[in-house]
Each structure stands twice: as structure tokens, then as C-alpha cells.
Simulated assay, not measured.
Amino acid sequence: MTENRRPPVELHRLIHALIQDGELVKRFRDTPDAVFSQFFVPREQVEMLKSDPQSAFRELGVHPNLQFKYLGLSGLLNLKPASIRPFLERDDTSWGK
């Protein structure tokens, strides 16, 4: 986050609301500009998020947990399925000592 920039309070509020409200997520995916407006997210931040969300998050100082949630709720997060089973089934009794 640049030194003169204030924390992205409106964006944080939007992300928290998305986490709690499935209907809001649907509206956000269909009409993101209307939802950004509803939460008073500054236009500059909206444009940054539209052009490159990950860079925008870094520049704005958005917490990594909220970044992850925003990307997932926005449909922008594509993760391959993963399992910790290989780690758990490992025959290695040295870990934890």
C-alpha cells in the first residue's frame, strides 16, 4: 500500500458482506458495478480490481485472507483439487520429534 493511500475500508466491507450473503454474491457476479457502487468502493479501486486484481490487492494492502475470499467468491480463483493424504500416509516417524 502506498504511504498516502488510506485502507480500502469499503472494499473490506464488501468482501465481508460477500462472505455472509449468497444472494449478494450472485448479484456481484451478474452486476459487479452496481454492487461496488452499493458499497461505495472508490472508482479508482474498482478499475484497479478489474484490470489486475492481484496487483490491486497488493497496492491497496488488502489482507491475503480477504484476497483469497474475494477471488473465490468472484469466480476468479481456479485451484486444482489437492489432498493432504500423501503427507498423512507418509511412513516417516521422524516428523514431530
Rank of each mutant, 00 (worst) to 15 (best):
E59H: 10
L79S: 06
K26M: 03
I84E: 10
K80Y: 05
Q45C: 01
E47W: 03
P42T: 08
M48H: 05
I84R: 11
P32Q: 10
L49A: 02
G72Q: 11
A56R: 00
G72L: 06
R13V: 10
D91Y: 01
P53E: 08
K69N: 09
N65F: 11
R29A: 02
K80T: 12
I19K: 05
L18R: 07
D33L: 13
N65K: 12
H16K: 14
E10R: 07
K50N: 13
F28Y: 10
E23P: 03
D33K: 14
F57Q: 02
M1N: 10
L79R: 02
P64T: 09
P53L: 00
E10W: 07
D92W: 10
S37Y: 05
F28K: 00
L76W: 06
P86T: 07
D92C: 10
L11R: 13
S83D: 12
V25P: 02
F87I: 15
G61M: 04
K97F: 14
L88Y: 10
T93Y: 14
P53F: 04
F39V: 00
D91I: 11
P64K: 11
H63P: 01
D33P: 04
R13Q: 13
R29G: 01
H63F: 05
K97D: 15
F36A: 00
F87D: 09
S55Y: 05
R58G: 14
V62P: 00
V62E: 05
L77I: 03
G72C: 02
D91P: 00
K97N: 14
S55R: 14
I15N: 03
D52W: 01
F87N: 09
H16V: 12
F40V: 04
L77K: 11
N4E: 11
L14A: 04
N65C: 03
L24N: 06
V9C: 05
I15L: 04
P53D: 02
L49Q: 02
R5L: 13
Q67E: 15
G22M: 05
S74Y: 07
I84N: 08
D92Q: 04
M1E: 12
A34S: 10
V62H: 06
F40L: 12
S51H: 10
R5C: 13
G75M: 02
S74T: 04
E44K: 08
R85N: 13
K97Q: 14
L88F: 12
L88M: 13
P7G: 03
K50I: 05
G96E: 07
V9E: 11
